[in-house]
Design a protein around this nucleic acid. Structure first.
Lengths: 358, 358
DNA sequence: TTGAAAGCGCTAACAG
DNA sequence: CTGTTAGCGCTTTCAA
């Protein structure tokens, strides 16, 4: 470390700077002002290219600022402007490609607008979701972009935000549809399309591993499932609709339940990656073949669908666009607070692979 | 929204509060002071349980603060204390379970200490890594916990931090070993163990899909690989050591290269999830069987190892502990700035599954 | 026991 | 063209 200090002081001397003592982490306007011998406001103006300041002074100040790599203190700016230029994002988990990709989309728009995003995971629990909301609000994010946890049935923690006019956007798993802008996919349509796809490929005993009943996506896809059955002229069998949560364990149990039925289904679709993969493992564990004995379709991402054997037919989301749209809705609120809540519906794609075609 | 406003005003009235106008997002000490009719400093002291303030006043103020759910403005605190209680974390990607889990570990310690973490992804590129460092420093994080991107060979952006005594911790993929505390695993040992494992199971033509040459983990595991070969009495064949980056595409190409050799390897181990899964796909695509024709071992997480077919023998990291240790090293720097940089080495585990046993 | 004032870094209205 | 001042929310001397 001695060497480093030597280098530092050398560097300081070369620039002929008075300040920049050891340990000084950040340069302030005051530092620059003292260095040059003008007032703080002159420095501030110069850096903001205020026309009042003489060109040479401006140049000189900007040069020094660059050399000392001055960056405005966001805390001071935040305090002053009462705006932190930070968005909080809450997702059910960070491992799933789905959310990571959405976050990238949000990030892109945020960056264009000069905003940062603070990411928090609810780990699919209501408790952590509430905590995340509280923590993010404590840090004075300007608003939140959220995908509900699987447990969330009570919305008090969001109602508080709505009451205070704090910008909020829901995506995928949503609530308070009329008060909060949201981005979703055509879940009803997706559920229906899967059902039709099974039917067209000769499957008649179609089962659905739905997620928690409280989730909007579960409900909508169930609607699609029912509509699909109807339009195929198939009867709905209650025992073929099983709810489970988004964990491997629970999904395995639910799959078992289906496979233990006196009359087994010949095809299953599941609501998310964990559910589908768990189903696949359980089916294989029992020595059943996919798709010959049981066909399988899921909602997953490209990468994992083609990783497993057989490759999985699945509904893929336009995840990146999901993020883009969510961020856009967010900034619409920031920039035009009076805009009415809008819901953006994106299209999904059913990508057919081996797991569902005999 | 009309209803919500009504409820808000009702709520306000019930509490008999003068302030809390529409649109007021956050309560300040000033608000509380005005409400009660004391000075700001009295409120501040009361909330900090300063002994000077009379018990009744203290109680009254604390009650009001709770009712109006006052939370101190972290921007103001940060400005004042010159400490944001925020840590920046930079990982190569967010999709891999490995990093998500490490982040959880970091988060746990951070939370205990009352710190927040800001997560950024380098997307395995140097460019985004540098940007992430700059952005995080701009937001005045107190320091960084970093896993290098695969491209990082130049460390200027970190040297700047080191020069300024900004707390820094590297994990897994590290550099500046003597100046910066770090957490790694016994990579040499892991590489050696895999090689021995292959040997013990009858494989003699052992190949290694190494990552980028500049990465510490690549180098160390290569050492282990070489040591392993030696202790088995096998000769090192240069054509069996192939470098590739951490993408599926590149890994597929590298695998092809191995499989195109006049004398193919009978076993391969790869450095990370993407590499291993790409290798698996390519091996299968060519109609080769695993493990009969080619055995496969990788560094992956539990979840994905058991997802694929055949289940994958792999080295798993104690990811959560990784995060815990990294965070601890970080706080050691915050709390005892003079401590010498320390390197923590964690143990890996070789979990044997079907992909490597005939 | 409490209040007034300064200062953390910054901008903007107001003076010169 | 440039400096002075006030204030964003908070803690902490210093005064009373």
């Amino acid at each position: 470390m001695g060497l480093l200090y030597f280098l530092l002081s050398l560097f300081t001397e070369l620039l002929g700077l008075k300040i920049m003592e050891k340990g000084k982490r950040h340069i302030s306007l005051k530092d620059l002002a003292q260095e040059i011998g003008v007032s703080i406001s002159t420095v501030s103006r110069a850096l903001n290219n205020h026309p009042d300041i003489s060109p040479e002074v401006t140049r000189k100040i900007q040069k020094l600022a660059a050399e000392m790599n001055y960056t405005p203190n966001p805390l001071a700016m935040g305090l002053l402007k009462q705006a932190t230029r930070t968005i909080g994002v809450i997702v059910p988990d960070l491992v799933t490609h789905f959310y990571s990709s959405i976050i990238s989309g949000i990030e892109q728009v945020a960056e264009e607008k000069g905003y940062f995003i603070l990411i928090a995971s609810s780990n699919e629990t209501l408790e952590k979701e509430i905590k995340a909301v509280d923590n993010l609000m404590k840090t004075r994010v300007e608003g939140l972009i959220v995908c509900l946890s699987q447990e969330t049935e009570n919305y008090d923690h969001f109602d508080r935000l709505i009451r205070n006019n704090i910008p909020l956007v829901f995506f995928d798993r949503i609530c308070r549809k009329d008060e909060v802008p949201s981005v979703v996919v055509d879940d009803v349509d997706a559920g229906k399309r899967i059902t039709l796809h099974f039917f067209e490929n000769g499957f008649r005993k179609i089962a659905y591993l739905a997620g928690p009943e409280n989730l909007s996506i579960s409900q909508e896809r169930t609607q699609g499932y029912l509509a699909g059955l109807k339009s195929c002229g198939l009867n709905f069998r209650p025992e073929f609709l099983v709810h489970c949560n988004m964990s491997s364990e629970d999904a395995t149990k639910a799959t078992s339940q289906l496979l233990d039925l006196p009359e087994k289904p010949d095809s299953i679709f599941g609501i998310n990656d964990y559910v589908v993969f768990a189903a696949m493992k359980e089916i294989k564990r029992r020595g059943l073949r996919i798709p010959e004995d049981i066909a399988l379709v899921g909602f997953t991402d490209e990468f994992h669908s083609t990783l497993v054997d057989p490759e999985l037919t699945s509904v893929t989301h336009p995840t990146f666009d999901f993020g883009l749209e969510a961020a856009r809705l967010f900034f619409r609120q920031i920039e035009h607070p009076e805009t009415k809540p809008e819901q953006v519906v994106l299209k999904t794609k059913l990508v057919v692979r081996k797991s569902s075609v005999k």
